[in-house]
Amino acid sequence: MSFWPVAKLTFKESVKERFFIGMLLVEVLLLFLSYYLSELAAGDSVKVGMDFALVFYFFLTALFAVMVPVSTLFRDISDKFVYLILSKPIKRESYLAGKYFGSLMALALFLFASFFIVSVGVLGISHFARLYVPHVIVVERIFLLTLSLFLMGALLSAFSTFFSILFTSQTLATVVGFLLFLSGLELASVKELALSSDYVSPFNKLLIKVLYYFFPNFSLYDLKAYAVHLQLSVSSLYFALIVLYTLLYSCAVLLISTWLFNRREL
């Protein structure tokens, strides 16, 4: 359990940073923006407003999940705090696991706070738009979206940990992490499009298939539509499968990260 002190310290360090409060404030500001954008919508203004609010929620979570592990790991390594930690009876793998779990704990707190902010915001949008939306159902759906965002954050944090060890530049690790997230969101659509097209060669179709199964698929966690459109539903099997997917993929990425970190000179 030598990873636990590192996890606790990483959590304390992360939530005391200005970045943490800053992200929550941005969340609030974006909710106000969503309300004003919903006012401009020609169609169903509540749904447009909620859509915007949840899109911002989705992307802010991804940004948080990329930036927290990258910044704490990079600071530890570049400022040599890692020397103080690894001079104690802590194995490198425990250190890395501690950093990862500490980041996840910070993400959980961020999502917990965000859940309240977003729920109040979304209900506020429907209230001000003077349209009735069943509150309990909306909050329940936002809660399920929050859980899926936590799973997405867990996988993204594992990749951020990996990039922090792979690259020697914090900016590069952050940019690559976020690009991976964006490509992971679109990969499923690209695959669908490529496989149904007659203009894509069989080799390229195969390549796209391989890439699709190799790279993480972040569109699996995208339950925004489910949260907004009350007629949609998510089965518990689907949810269980994305939990399993997250666990397996994150473990694989963290194992590779540990292998690399054990060979890295500090």
Binding site: P5, L9, K12, E13, K16, K80, P89, I90
Partner: peptide, 30 residues
Amino acid sequence: KRKVGFLPERPYVPLSITGKEYLDFCADVY
């Protein structure tokens, strides 16, 4: 490393934590 203490040159610690929190971290480890 249980029997060893180490202090690097120009050491850094996260400045957002308190002195006690750092000591708590070390006490947790040991």
